[in-house]
Nucleic acid binder design. Structure first.
Length: 690
DNA sequence: ATACGCGCTTTT
DNA sequence: AAAGCGCGTATC
C-alpha cells in the first residue's frame, strides 16, 4: 500500500502519498513524487497536485520509494473521490508498459486516460458517474442473447481446445478469412459474460471492421457494448471509458488504446488480426497493444485469444515453441473454395510501355462485369502518378522540404508531398528549363481508375483511398455503394483489403505487389504476404460465387517463393522459410531490437548525437550482450526540413536489452547539453520497421 | 514540460 | 534603466 503514517506531525494525521504526474519521458521526474494528504488513498486515485508554481493532474500510485530527505512535502489539492480508483493491477500494467517502452510512468498513465477526464471538475465528474450508474440501474436486465448458430465441427473442436487450456496460456487462433474465427470469439465472449465477467475485444482499426462490431452487437443485443477508439468525440470517449471502468459495460470493442481500459471484471481478451501493424503505437510511448494484452492476460490469469489468418512471426514462433496454444480453423465455413491464385509474368509483355493491367487480367475483370460480379483492384499508391518529370532537362517534382517526390493529383491539378503535406499547383512548364512537355511517371489509384474507365466502357468504377474517404462518413458511403452492387470494379489502397465482407467480389488483383517485395525492411515480405492473403480473403465469400473466384498478381518476379506459398495458400511454408531467414540473420523473433531515433536540423548533428550515444552505451555494464549498429538515415531522411536518423540496438536476450536501455537513459540525458541542435530523441522498443 | 532566475543583450 | 532573450535548473 502507498500509505505511511508520518509520526509526530503535531497530532494531525498526515499520510504520505506517492503520485505520478505527466512529466516527459526522460526527465528526473519520471518516477512517483511524494505528497501529503489527510487520509490514505487507493492506488490510481485521480488527483490535482501542486508542482512548482502550477497545479497539475496526477494519480496516486503504489509507493516505490519515499520522498528524498529535506524536502518539504506539499499537500494534495484535490482528490476526485467520485471516480473509483483505478487499482493496483491497472497501475502495474501502466508501470510495466512505461518501464518496458522506456517512458515516464506518469506520462503513460495520464496519456491513456480519456483527455476529457482531466478537463472536468470534481462536481461534473461526480455527476457523470452518478448519471451512468442511475441509467444502468434503470435499464432492463440483460436478456437471453440472440441464439448462436450451431458451431461447425472445426469451431466445436477449437472451442473445446480453448476450454481445456490453463487460464494463463495465450491461444493463437489460426484460421483463414471466412473460417469462422468471429464465431469462436463470440462463443468465448459468451462464456466470459455468462460467468459475470467483462470481455475486451481489440481490433486494428475500428472503421475498417464494421462487420465485427455488428456481429457482436447482434449476438449480445441485451448487453451493454461500448466502442473505445480515438475517433470518438471527447465526451463519447469519456462515457465509454467510464462504463468500462464502472463495470457497467460487459463488452469493450476497441483499438490499441483500449488495452489500457480499466475493467474491474475482465474475463477475456481477444486480439483480432493480431499481426496487424496498427497495434503498434507509433509516437509517444511506442507500445504494442497485442503484447500488452498478453501481459495483462497473464497478470490477471485471464485467457487471451490472438486471431489471424497470417500470424505475426513472433506469435507463430511462440506457438511452435509451445508457449502459445495453437488452435487452428483449417477450412472456410461450408468449405467455400479459396480463390485460385494466378500470376502474370510481366516479362512476357513486349518491350515498351506496359499497360495498366496485363491482358488476361483485363479479360478477367471484364468477365466479372459482364456476369454482374465485382472485381477489386489493389494498388498501394494514391494520387495519379508518384512523380512528374521533364522529358527535356530531367527535372522531377521534388519536395522542397523532404527527401521525397511530390505526388501528382490530377483531380485538383496539384503536386502534393505525402510526408509534410505541402502542396502546389501543377506547373504548366518545367520550372527549370521552361519546356512544356512534363509527364507523369508511374501509376497511382487515380490513374488506374482512369485507365480502367477507358478499357471497360460502361463499367461502374469506384475508388477508395485516403483521398476519396477524407470527409466523415465518406468511407461508409463508398462501402455501401459496393455492397448495394452500384459499383462493378473497385480500385483501392490497402484499406480495402481489410475485413470487409464484399459478397459479390470474385476477383482480386494486386497491380503492383513488387514494390513491397524488395523493400529494405526485414518485415516487408511478412507484411506483403499478410496483405495478399487478406486481400485474397475478399474474394468468393459468398458460396454462390466462390467456385469462380480468382486472385491475380502481375509481377516481374513470378519465381519468388512468396508467390509460390501464396498460390498454395500455405502460410506454414511461408512462415517456415521466413523463420529460417530470420534465424540466420539474427532478426526477430530470434533477436530483440530497439531503435534510438533522433531528429535534428542537420544530418551531421543527428549523426554526432547518435555516435556519442553509441560510445556511452559501450561503457555501460552488460554492453557486451548488446550490439549497437552504426547510425543510418531513415528511408525518407528529411521530412519538413528535419533530418531523421536512427541507430539499431540488438541483443539475443530481451532482459539484456532491457537492462542496457534502462542504464542508457541517464547517459542520453547527459548528452543533451553537448548536442543542443538535436531536437528530439526517442527509443522505440520492438520497432515494427527498421 | 514549465516556470523561473541569471547574466547578457538591445531598446527607450 | 527597462525590457528582451538564450540557457541552466528545479519541480515531491
Amino acid at each position: 500500500l502507498n500509505v505511511v503514517l508520518v509520526a509526530g506531525n503535531s497530532g494531525c494525521n498526515q499520510n504520505q502519498v506517492a503520485v505520478v504526474v505527466e512529466t516527459p519521458a526522460h526527465s528526473a521526474l519520471a518516477g512517483p513524487l511524494t505528497y501529503r494528504h489527510e487520509r490514505a488513498l487507493e492506488p490510481g486515485t485521480l488527483l490535482r497536485v501542486p508542482l512548482g508554481r502550477r497545479t497539475t493532474a496526477g494519480l496516486s500510485w503504489p509507493a516505490t520509494t519515499g520522498a528524498p530527505d529535506g524536502v518539504e512535502l506539499r499537500a494534495v489539492v484535490e482528490a476526485f473521490d467520485a471516480l473509483p480508483a483505478l487499482g493496483a493491477q491497472w497501475c502495474a500494467l501502466v508501470e510495466f508498459a512505461a518501464r518496458y517502452y522506456q517512458r515516464g510512468i506518469g506520462e503513460v498513465a495520464l496519456a491513456v486516460l480519456p483527455p476529457e477526464l482531466r478537463r472536468l471538475g470534481a462536481a461534473q465528474l461526480a455527476q457523470r458517474v452518478a448519471r451512468l450508474r442511475k441509467a444502468a440501474a434503470e435499464a432492463p436486465p440483460p436478456h437471453a442473447d440472440e441464439p448462436a448458430p450451431a458451431p461447425t465441427a472445426a469451431q466445436g473442436d477449437a472451442l473445446a481446445r480453448l476450454a481445456e487450456l490453463p487460464r494463463s496460456a495465450p491461444a493463437l487462433l489460426h484460421g483463414l478469412t471466412g473460417s469462422g474465427k468471429t464465431e469462436v470469439y463470440l462463443r468465448s465472449a459468451e462464456r466470459a459474460l455468462t460467468a459475470g465477467r467483462q470481455a475486451l475485444v481489440l481490433v486494428p482499426e475500428i472503421n475498417l471492421t464494421p462487420q465485427l462490431e455488428a456481429r457482436f452487437a447482434a449476438r449480445f443485443g441485451g448487453r451493454r457494448i461500448v466502442s473505445l477508439h480515438s475517433a470518438l468525440t471527447p465526451a463519447q470517449r469519456l462515457r465509454a471509458w467510464l462504463l468500462a471502468h464502472l463495470g457497467l459495460a460487459d463488452l469493450v470493442l476497441g483499438t490499441r488504446l483500449a488495452v489500457f481500459a480499466p475493467l474491474p471484471r475482465l474475463g477475456l481478451i481477444v486480439v483480432d488480426e493480431e499481426h496487424d501493424p496498427s497495434y503498434k503505437q507509433q509516437e509517444g510511448a511506442r507500445y504494442s497493444a497485442r503484447d500488452l494484452a498478453v501481459w495483462r492476460g497473464r497478470q490477471l490469469g485471464v485467457p487471451v485469444l490472438l486471431g489471424s489468418a497470417t500470424p505475426s512471426l513472433e506469435s507463430w514462433q511462440r506457438a511452435l515453441d509451445g508457449r502459445y496454444a495453437h488452435v487452428a480453423l483449417p477450412a472456410r465455413v461450408g468449405d467455400a473454395a479459396l480463390p485460385t491464385v494466378r500470376l502474370f509474368d510481366l516479362n512476357r509483355l513486349p518491350r515498351g510501355e506496359a499497360p495498366a493491367l496485363a491482358p488476361p487480367i483485363i479479360d478477367a475483370v471484364r468477365a466479372r462485369v459482364e456476369r454482374g460480379e465485382q472485381a477489386l483492384l489493389l494498388l498501394n499508391r494514391r494520387g495519379y502518378a508518384p512523380v512528374l518529370h521533364c522529358t527535356n532537362c530531367g527535372w522531377k517534382s521534388a519536395c522542397a522540404h523532404c527527401s521525397a517526390w511530390r505526388v501528382f493529383h490530377k483531380v485538383d491539378r496539384t503536386l502534393r508531398c505525402h510526408h509534410c503535406g505541402a502542396q502546389q499547383r501543377v506547373p504548366r512548364h518545367c520550372p527549370d528549363c521552361g519546356n512544356a512537355d512534363i509527364a507523369p511517371i508511374g501509376r497511382g489509384t487515380e490513374r488506374l481508375e482512369e485507365q480502367l474507365a477507358a478499357l471497360l466502357p460502361g463499367a461502374r468504377i469506384g475508388r477508395i483511398d485516403a483521398d476519396t474517404t477524407r470527409r466523415a462518413g465518406a468511407l461508409q458511403a463508398r462501402l455501401a455503394e459496393v455492397h448495394a452492387g452500384d459499383i462493378d470494379v473497385l480500385v483501392g489502397t490497402q484499406m480495402v483489403a481489410k475485413g470487409h465482407d464484399f459478397r459479390r467480389v470474385t476477383l482480386v488483383a494486386a497491380v503492383n505487389p513488387d514494390s513491397a517485395l524488395f523493400a529494405s525492411d526485414f518485415r516487408a515480405a511478412e507484411r506483403l504476404f499478410a496483405l495478399l492473403m487478406q486481400a485474397a480473403g475478399r474474394a468468393g465469400r459468398d458460396r454462390a460465387f466462390s467456385a469462380s473466384s480468382e486472385m491475380w498478381l502481375q509481377t516481374w518476379h513470378p519465381q519468388h517463393a512468396l508467390f509460390a506459398a501464396l498460390r498454395a495458400h500455405d502460410y506454414d511454408a511461408f512462415a517456415a522459410a521466413q523463420l529460417a531467414e530470420r534465424r540466420a540473420a539474427g532478426m526477430p523473433p530470434f533477436a530483440h531490437l530497439a531503435l534510438l531515433r533522433t531528429d535534428a536540423r542537420s544530418a551531421d548533428a543527428a549523426q554526432a548525437f547518435l555516435h556519442d550515444a553509441a560510445s556511452a552505451a559501450a561503457t555501460l555494464p552488460g554492453a557486451d550482450a548488446v550490439m549497437v549498429y552504426p547510425p543510418v538515415p531513415l528511408a525518407v531522411a528529411r521530412v519538413a526540413g528535419i533530418e531523421r536518423m536512427q541507430m539499431l540496438v540488438e541483443s539475443a536476450s530481451r532482459p539484456a536489452l532491457q537492462r542496457l536501455l534502462a542504464a542508457w537513459q541517464p547517459a542520453l540525458q547527459a548528452l543533451r547539453s553537448r548536442h543542443r541542435t538535436v531536437q528530439r530523441w526517442a527509443i522505440d522498443v520492438d520497432p515494427h520497421a527498421i
